[in-house]
Amino acid sequence: MKMLKNMWISSSFLRLSSHPLNKRMASAIVSSLRLRPTFSSATSPFSSSSAGDVKPRPAVILPGLGNNSGDYKKLEVTLGEYGVPAVVAAVSRLDWFRNAAGLVDPAYWRGTLRPRPVLDWYLKRIDDAVREANELAQGERLSLIGHSAGGWLARVYMEEYGNSHVSLLLTLGTPHLPPPRGQAGVVDQTRGLLYYVEEHCAKAVYTPELRYVCIAGRYIRGAPLLDNADADVDSNVTVGIEGGEAISELAVTSAAPTLRARFVGQGYKQVCGRADVWGDGVVPEVSAHLQGALNVSFDGVYHSPVGSDEETRPWYGSPVIVKDWIHHLLE
């Protein structure tokens, strides 16, 4: 299949509402075409007209599943360049093996596992980081930045420890929604944890007192294991960054999805019940948004700092992407 690589789009393109699961991308036959990049950004209705007079709130960065604190060092530095002091919760890769304690809980095998006590160790790390950030805040409130599982664990923390000191929860590629129950071929990887969060944690809001901002990535579209006769766009469409601008690769004709798209699609299916959806390579776009939150999607954004590349595979915390969501921390 031939791909057209000279269609330029803005790396800051935002979608402020999630895509319906059944929305299909139209195929396009495009002649050689180069468009000037356009830039846009989402503006909060609560933005201050004199943002320069507002001292940025400290931010607490919460690592995702399998990540360690060092993976977010560059993000911490980038935030500092915008004047946002940041504290990364102290987590090592070995710490995640603590979750194996859940295997001895019968609730794990029933699929009704609760966050506590299995994840008490992580909640304690959040609290330690929040206490450190509070010293920097000097009485002001904080921002929580949760990457991947760190986003829904932040919601558990706010439910268990209180949120009076939090004014913003910004999540990056977080699988907020539990998978559909009883669907063939779908196994809840969290063994009930996301069902608990959905049922017991506070709903997302976007108010002057507390704002939820949920950011999703559209890096690659998945595909089912078996060919979909109705597909009209190559499922291996990806969006990369070249020279500081994004490149969208559109398929000219229909073709069978690649092995990579099928593999990614099976991962998406375990999270949202569908394989043929867009996502960041790990978390589907539809799962990373919450009703009641300000939901934003970025084209060309990969899930994790591990395996990311600043030029062709930026992740949510890459400087070229941070510049398009940093305003939420400055408001």
Score class of each variant (00 low, 15 high):
G273R: 04
V60T: 12
P56K: 01
E132I: 05
G70P: 04
E135W: 01
E249D: 11
S17K: 15
D227Y: 04
G292Q: 06
N228C: 13
L75Y: 06
A137K: 00
E242T: 09
A100L: 07
T38V: 01
E132L: 07
S164E: 13
P178G: 03
R211V: 02
A90W: 05
H147N: 15
L259E: 06
I220E: 13
I126N: 14
F97A: 11
Y316F: 15
V252E: 08
E160I: 03
E285N: 10
S235D: 07
S148P: 02
T238W: 07
Y219F: 14
S50H: 06
N22Y: 02
I241P: 05
K5F: 12
V197C: 13
V104Y: 00
L136C: 15
D324A: 09
P117M: 10
D309P: 13
A86L: 11
P180E: 09
R57T: 05
D276E: 11
N67C: 15
A255N: 13
V88F: 07
E160Q: 09
S304G: 10
S92H: 03
G267D: 04
N6V: 08
D276W: 06
A28Y: 14
A288G: 13
S18H: 00
R98C: 05
L172G: 14
A256Y: 01
V264N: 07
M158H: 08
V91P: 07
S27L: 08
T171P: 04
S143R: 05
L329T: 09
A223W: 08
L330Q: 14
V186N: 11
A129Q: 10
L119S: 15
C272Q: 09
H200E: 12
V197E: 14
H165A: 01
V306Y: 00
C272D: 10
H165M: 01
C214D: 00
E140C: 06
G240S: 14
K124P: 02
V166H: 03
V320L: 15
S48P: 01
P106E: 00
V84W: 02
S143K: 03
E311H: 10
N228D: 15
P208V: 13
S11N: 00
G150K: 09
M25D: 07
V88E: 09
V187C: 08
A251M: 04
V252M: 07
C272G: 08
K2G: 11
A261S: 15
P178T: 03
V104G: 01
E310C: 08
A137W: 02
E209D: 15
R125C: 07
R221S: 12
V286G: 02
